[in-house]
Amino acid sequence: MKKITMFMFESCPHCKLARKCLDELKAEHPEYAAVPFEMVDEKKQPDVAAKYDYYYVPTFFVDGEKVHEGHAEKADVEKVFKTALA
């Protein structure tokens, strides 16, 4: 099982949608709740965000590898979880 790191910021509407999808998927698939997960607010943690190569939020990394960047629908977030579980 690999760690997911999500980069976001609080007022981003795309990030809010991605967080809603995260919650729905964890409720539908309890195994997703066990995946190590870190959410980094790029405005509150710019030192952490600066270490990663991305432009848009939300962006998801799995074990340090970028797997999705930008607007994320439920299917996109589920792909992130499946990558972490592979």
Rank of each mutant, 00 (worst) to 15 (best):
A18T: 05
A18L: 02
R19K: 14
R19I: 12
R19W: 08
K20A: 09
K20S: 11
C21Y: 13
C21M: 14
D23V: 12
D23Q: 13
D23P: 02
E24W: 02
E24F: 02
L25P: 08
L25C: 11
K26Q: 12
K26R: 14
E28P: 06
E28N: 09
E28Q: 12
H29D: 05
H29T: 06
H29Y: 14
H29Q: 03
P30R: 10
E31Q: 15
Y32A: 11
Y32H: 13
Y32C: 08
Y32S: 07
Y32L: 06
Y32F: 15
A34P: 12
A34E: 15
V35D: 09
V35N: 10
V35H: 09
V35E: 11
P36C: 05
P36N: 13
P36L: 07
F37W: 07
F37G: 00
M39G: 03
M39C: 03
M39V: 06
V40T: 02
V40A: 00
V40F: 03
E42T: 11
K43G: 02
K43F: 10
K43W: 13
K44S: 07
K44L: 07
P46W: 01
P46R: 08
D47R: 09
D47V: 01
D47A: 14
V48N: 15
A49R: 01
A49M: 06
A50T: 04
K51F: 00
K51E: 04
Y52D: 00
Y52S: 00
Y52W: 12
D53N: 13
D53W: 04
Y55F: 07
Y55T: 10
P58G: 04
P58C: 06
T59V: 12
T59Y: 06
F60Y: 14
F61W: 11
F61S: 05
D63N: 13
D63C: 01
E65F: 04
E65N: 08
K66L: 11
V67D: 10
V67R: 12
H68P: 08
E69C: 00
E69F: 02
G70M: 10
G70R: 10
G70L: 08
G70H: 10
H71M: 13
A72E: 07
A72M: 11
E73D: 07
E73P: 01
